[in-house]
């Protein structure tokens, strides 16, 4: 499968794209138990774990691709699909659930016209529901690219997304 289909922009020259990962593989390939660390670094570089990058790691470490894929799909942190510019992590922990996280999810899905786990057509937003962000006293909470937004209401969440989208449009015009 060509790289582009996986969302990679390396024009098929995946070797070139992943050289940034070489020092990490070099450092950890002989340290037992380092696969998760390598995968975390790979995801930081590439945004997600494509088939190509998994094969690249397999070549570098000697670990079988099937095993790497097994580890990658076991943990919630790893993604095998590309994500949008803004990753929305909506907390679905107990406190958020009790305080209406489902309603917030509805509002986000309505505003962005996507379902949980999907990315908007313009590649701007991805919605992921997560177990708990640990900001329970501010529930319901979501985190967008690391920044937390608390005490959400249907209105406030729509406003936040609307403003981000406007900001993107304004930058696009420039």
């Amino acid at each position: 499968m060509s790289c582009e289909k996986n969302g990679c922009k390396c024009n098929g020259n995946s070797e070139f794209k992943f050289v940034q990962l070489d020092p990490v593989i070099e450092k950890y390939k002989n340290v037992p138990g380092s696969l998760i660390k390598i995968l975390q670094a790979a995801q930081d570089i590439n945004g997600f774990l494509s088939k190509d990058i998994i094969n690249y790691i397999a070549n570098g470490t000697g670990i079988k691709p099937a095993k790497i894929y097994g580890v990658a799909t076991f943990y919630a942190q790893f993604r095998t699909k590309p994500i949008g510019k803004y990753l929305i992590m909506l907390c679905k922990g107990t406190a958020c659930h009790v305080n209406g996280a489902d309603m917030i999810e509805e509002a986000i899905c309505e505003e962005l016209n996507i379902a949980e786990g999907e990315t908007t057509a313009d590649g701007l937003f991805t919605l992921n529901c997560v177990a708990c962000l640990g900001c329970c006293s501010l529930s319901p909470v979501m985190m967008i690219n690391g920044e937390a937004f608390g005490k959400l209401t249907k209105e406030s969440v729509k406003k936040i997304l609307y403003e981000l989208r406007n900001q993107e449009r304004a930058e696009g015009v420039k």
């Binding site: 138990g33 998760i36 995968l39 942190q77 790893f78």
Partner: peptide
């Protein structure tokens, strides 16, 4: 420090050890 990768079951000690070893937890 070892950063986990998001799996509730890794709170169980033998699963946590498997994860420390770079395996599925």
């Amino acid at each position: 420090i070892k950063a986990g990768a998001g799996a509730f079951v890794c709170g169980e000690e033998t699963a946590l050890i498997a994860s420390l070893e770079g395996e599925r937890g």
